[in-house]
Computed example of a mutant assay.
Amino acid sequence: MNVPWAVGQEPQTQSIVQNDDVVRARQQVRGFAQSCGLSLVDQTKFITAASELARNTLVYGGGGEMRAGLVERDGRRGIAAVFEDSGPGIPDIELALTDGWTSGGGLGLGLSGARRLVDEFLLDTEPGRGTAVTIVKWSR
């Protein structure tokens, strides 16, 4: 997905290498979600999705980074976040996006739950190459 970053609004990068970075990533997207006019419900959905993906980046990807910022397309504004790691990648994308499936000790709602909470979701992964997940939420 080619992220339509807002003109004059460079995305901000947050390293995700320790637990505190997950909190910082959540705070960063909260600020963007508020500034682009998302409803409180949509803010909560995006923040929750971003928090899940930041945690996945740390736990399953061995750390990485998030780029987040405002986006514009066809006169609409919103927020996007891209989570990237150089971890082991996901061998079976369809299985990983199935509710209830987990490769660890979690509830299996991270990727599939995040996908349901946002307007656009792109998962780019390959075993041995790492994972990139892009999410977008548009203001109404």
Rank of each mutant, 00 (worst) to 15 (best):
M1Q: 11
V3R: 01
A6H: 05
A6M: 07
G8F: 05
Q14I: 14
Q14V: 15
Q18V: 07
D21V: 00
V22T: 04
V22R: 08
V22A: 11
V23H: 14
R24N: 13
R26Q: 15
Q27A: 15
Q27K: 15
Q27M: 14
Q27H: 15
V29N: 01
F32D: 03
Q34V: 09
S35E: 14
C36T: 09
L38A: 00
S39A: 08
T44L: 14
K45M: 13
K45A: 15
I47V: 15
A49N: 01
A49R: 06
L53G: 03
L53Q: 02
R55I: 07
V59I: 12
G61Y: 02
G63N: 11
E65R: 13
M66I: 08
R67A: 09
R67G: 08
V71F: 03
R73A: 07
D74W: 03
D74M: 04
R77T: 07
V82F: 00
S86F: 10
D92N: 14
A96L: 09
T102E: 11
G104K: 02
G104N: 09
G104S: 12
L107V: 12
L107C: 08
G108H: 09
S112K: 07
R116K: 15
T125Y: 02
P127T: 14
T134V: 05
I135M: 04
V136P: 01
K137Y: 08
W138K: 00
S139E: 11
R140L: 07
